[in-house]
Amino acid sequence: MIYLPIAEMTVNVLLVLLVSGSVGFVSGLVGVGGGFIMTPALIFMGVPAPVAVATGAGQIAATSFSGIMTQTRRKSVDWRMGMLLSIGGILGLSSGVWLFERLLGLGHLDLVISLLYLVLLAGVGSLMLMESLAVLRGRATKGVSILRRPARTIAHTLPFRMLFPRSGLYISVIPPLVLGFGIGALAAIMGVGGGFILIPAMIYLLRMPTNVVVGTSLFQMLVVTSVLVVVQSRVTHTVDLVLAALLMLGGVVGAQLGARLGARLRNEQIRALLGLILIVASAKFLWDVVIPPQETYVFGGGVW
């Protein structure tokens, strides 16, 4: 048992390490960021939602740094694109933190977090389930996705075009900035890295080559979550150092172990199972906001 100084509660160290370790393991195994599983897991454990969201960002920073260490060796980061996405991300997270604080004051933060997770988990979960079932049935072959890459996108037609040598692109700076902004805002309010949106958008919208997508998205996540941790510490005082350290430890070790095993494993069954778990978790969020509550009164305005 350890006392969390900011959350002002006592948690079981082994339980937190176990949860963060398994979330990290699963995310490493399947190749998704852990944020959108970790934050709900913390909320279900009784950590106040604002603390869970803000502290989760620290863990994502650790995981992305550990990922970037292996990715940069393969020269797989488009630094110019990464910087652009990060600038958008920092603007986005500033608005996100502002909204976070407003919602906390109004007493709606928990509901908004629940609703966003409800949509997110249901969406990502069903996509994962459908895709892996399709692969399992042999309809899609390895490396070919359900979506087809368009030849030209809006990124090619908008003004303020710029050359991205590493990606071999000459596209407008507006889509990366807008994309980064959205990811940053999502990170601030939900405590997610946003890879599940960023990576498909980089592939299908920006048409970046797949070999730089993962490294560049990790770079953007590292910058955004690092800045986010500092801003949340300063503005909302919801980042818990002790909890963050435990999450980083469990998450990073779990992710490395998971990635190791994932490389040697055909993981469509696991992806299908994870998709199913995410759908169940989203149903839990739905259940909590739809069923008549036993207690109709709650504390509001930052008192949780």
Binding site: S64, G67, S233, L241, V253, Q256
Partner: peptide, 20 residues
């Protein structure tokens, strides 16, 4: 609080680096 936040970022980098 700004230093506190930076400390957590440093911690994240240290943990991520050592794990890698």
């Amino acid at each position: 609080s700004a230093f506190y936040g930076l400390m957590i970022v440093m911690l994240a980098i240290a943990v991520g680096w050592s794990a890698a």
